[in-house]
Design a protein around this nucleic acid. Structure first.
Lengths: 136, 136
DNA sequence: ACATTACCCTACTAAAACAGTAGATTTTGC
DNA sequence: GCAAAATCTACTGTTTTAGTAGGGTAATGT
């Protein structure tokens, strides 16, 4: 299960993708259209900006917008920023790897299986982009 | 990421799979070999017993053992018992489905993507069994 | 019968993560 | 300079996680 925060983040990105190229979008507008608590959304968008997924403009006429074309950013990148590792255990993670203290990875049956699920998820999340989040 | 509890549960099942058919195994033995806190392991094994994955025998010579052949039980079944839904959101779950209050699933871009990851994970977890958890 | 062995159960707790809220500050366009 | 909008800091209540403590209960070998 992903956190509410990740869900909201992805929804917001889908909304911004649909409006890509049309200038900054107000936080309030995203919050209202996607039914996300505005102050919570604030923290999410800020985090996405700090990681170069979004850019923003302050003051009147300001708002948030995608930093690059929605087809350029993979969902794997977004997922890692908001949610963290894609793998089910740290010892199987590519970007957040941590050695397993209590088992030998070379001989671990669980390890081999989780590598498979990791790769299956990666294959999808690396291919899909923010553009795919746009609602029909 | 899966919880420590799920990780321990799977490790324990792998150990029991290797000893399948050789009679009950002591909790203390599993705990020591797999480096799991014994009292924590107790609760996990109990939960697996209550869900017909394990069976146990009390008294001298007692212990825990797999209820059926390790190749008969899928990891998907075990995962759902200890960890819960395999899907990333309730609105995409087969066994723990909950309608999305704030969006229309038919038109949700996120929904379509998460169905794909769910199916990819299911394909692996339904096929793999407790037998595959045995360490080399 | 009885001690031993081992499963079973209840309650508790410290720490972390989650899901937000409140309010002040800074930047910008006009 | 004013209003609109993002930004920053800090806080809070709730839930989940990862256990621990301590005993109760049931079965077994002798």
């Amino acid at each position: 299960m992903i956190s509410q925060k990740t869900k909201y983040g992805l929804k917001a990105l889908g909304y911004l993708a649909a409006l890509y190229g049309k200038g900054p979008v107000l936080i309030a507008e995203i919050a209202q259209k996607k039914k996300i608590p505005i102050k919570f959304l604030e923290t999410i968008l800020l985090q996405l900006k700090q990681n170069q997924i979004l850019d923003s403009k302050k003051g009147k006429g300001g708002g948030y917008f995608l930093m690059s074309s929605p087809k350029k950013t993979s969902l794997a990148a977004v997922y890692r920023i908001i949610e963290g590792p894609i793998a089910m255990l740290p010892c199987v993670s590519l970007n957040f790897y941590q050695r397993c203290k209590d088992c030998n990875e070379k001989h671990c049956g669980l390890n081999k299986i989780l590598i498979q699920t990791r790769d299956a998820n990666l294959k999808i999340l690396e291919k899909k982009t923010i553009y795919d989040l746009i609602d029909e």
